[in-house]
Design a binder for these strands. Structure first.
Lengths: 155, 155
DNA sequence: TCGGATAGTTGGCAACTGCAACTATCCTCG
DNA sequence: CGAGGATAGTTGCAGTTGCCAACTATCCGA
């Protein structure tokens, strides 16, 4: 096994472990933003414009049932709207409400600011490179979905 | 907010969400390997040689209580050994047992193989670049630990 | 029109996490 | 040297996330 792959594996492992953190108790601040999971879903719905639930699940490589609950919560909070799909009575089309859009924008700005600070010492070129490689990696992950799942999850 | 940072944020978000997958039911295969969390901890202990629990927690940016339980499980499974720290009666020094080492090696080989497949189409140079940037990112994350936590977890 | 596929939902269960409270040990300072 | 604060870990408690399986409703091809 060649060494760069080994290093990628190690670094990804570390990064993913860190990402496991779950934020609780986020009430209190008047500007209460979004929880991790909600942010992911809301952000995706926003970027797609209109999506189906099953499409979201595929993107995130999550079970539809998982996404179903997250969407339900977002809808209850008034951040997402579901409209019946005129072409398929089983499906629902998800869109972001104005409120949802507003909350998302604030959350994103905050995250980007933090990331901006973390990357402050990086040459602009490296940031671009990193962005490109991450994008490529995500794309390839999705193509190898079946294998990938075993890797991420570790069977 | 400049665009490359934005893209990094988006790609990381996607990647992290995918990493949320938790694998259950991993019994069945005779070569039952490690679960995600256990793999992370075991791998780190192995690489460090000897570590304290609190050190692990800092590396993963997790609460010590969380790591405490993971270590306890690994110990119960006979993959990790704890020895009292001769220089500090409160602390314990963690090391990997021969069995643990064996299981870890198998798991790692499998993961690397999968990653190898995902990265099959990449020029060797890009893989190296990616590895380097990930490492740099992880290092910077740890320096900005306080901010980082809010970002990963989303407050 | 009937039966198999598809979109989502819900119930049940396990894994992770964090915080707070608690024990045991360490260490500094009077 | 003894007291009190800091530090290493553990445990109780509760919340989030995730998967699978079973179920409903709809769609679509024969």
């Amino acid at each position: 096994m060649d060494s760069p792959v080994k290093q990628v594996e190690e670094e990804l492992t570390l990064l993913m472990c860190r990402a496991q953190r779950v934020r609780l108790h986020n009430e209190g601040a008047e500007l209460r933003l979004l929880e991790r999971s909600a942010y992911n879903v809301l952000g995706r719905v926003h970027d797609e414009g209109v999506v189906r639930l099953s499409e979201l699940a595929a993107t995130f490589m999550l079970d539809v049932s998982t996404v179903s609950r997250q969407v339900a919560a977002l809808q209850a909070a008034g951040l997402i709207r579901r409209a019946p799909d005129p072409s398929d009575g089983r499906a629902a089309l998800l869109t972001v409400t104005p409120t949802g859009r507003d909350v998302l924008e604030r959350t994103r700005a905050q995250r980007r600011q933090i990331l901006h600070d973390v990357l402050a010492g990086w040459p602009a070129q490296d940031v671009e490179l990193f962005a490109g490689l991450l994008a490529k990696f995500n794309a390839d992950l999705r193509e190898h979905a079946a294998d990938t799942i075993s890797m991420l999850a570790l069977r």
